[in-house]
């Protein structure tokens, strides 16, 4: 009995009026805790959590939007770049085509001019030839006339001097020499 009473004294001596136990529950503290906590919850909900959480989600949305926008802009830029590339190659092709056409045209022009000039040259040659021929025949006719004249003249003189053969030969030779000169 003695033991048990001492044991009880040891266990509960700390729970006495003077020092108190950590497991003592003070109803006043409960009340104040409820009041304080509920007040804190209401105040913070109004002044802090609502604006802060709104700002946070606003910022998150802003970042998300910005990323999406950037993504879209990049895609657009890539598309534009590809389009530009296509346009550029097309333009180059066009330029090449134009140059090709120009070259072809020049070639054609060249051959045409060459052809024309050849024709003209040939024509000129033909003209010249015919002119020469004409002149030739003209000269020949003149010569023929002159030869005829000379022959007639010679014949006249021969006829006038119908003497000896010697004389005739001399005469003929003399005329021939004259003609040579």
């Amino acid at each position: 009995m003695n033991t048990i009473s001492y044991l009880l004294l040891l266990v509960f001596s700390e729970g006495g009026e003077k020092s108190g136990s950590p497991l003592d529950v003070n109803p006043g503290v409960i009340l104040w805790t409820v009041v304080t906590f509920v007040l804190l919850l209401l105040i913070l909900k109004k002044i802090a959590w609502k604006p802060i959480l709104n700002s946070l989600s606003e910022r998150e949305n802003f970042i998300k939007d910005s990323l999406e926008k950037a993504d879209k802009a990049q895609k657009d830029a890539e598309k534009l770049l590809a389009e530009n590339k296509v346009n550029l190659s097309k333009a180059e092709e066009d330029a090449q085509k134009i140059i090709e056409q120009g070259r072809e045209f020049a070639e054609k022009l060249k051959t045409q001019i060459l052809e024309e000039s050849k024709i003209q040259a040939r024509k000129m040659i033909v003209d010249a030839t015919s002119e020469i021929e004409r002149k030739n025949s003209e000269a020949f006719i003149k010569l023929k006339d002159q030869v005829a004249d000379i022959a007639v003249n010679a014949a006249e003189k021969i006829l006038r001097e119908t003497l000896d053969k010697d004389k005739q030969v001399k005469l003929v030779n003399k005329y021939l020499d004259d003609m040579k000169n």
Partner: peptide, 30 residues
């Protein structure tokens, strides 16, 4: 009922004041 203010109640109020002041400031910076 004994609803005396105790040391722990005072420190709870201190926590309340610290939190309210801090978050008032924080909410304003946002």
């Amino acid at each position: 009922i004994d609803i005396s203010i105790t040391k722990h109640v005072v420190f709870m109020w201190l926590a309340l004041v610290i939190l309210v002041v801090t978050f008032l400031y924080v909410a304003r910076t946002y």
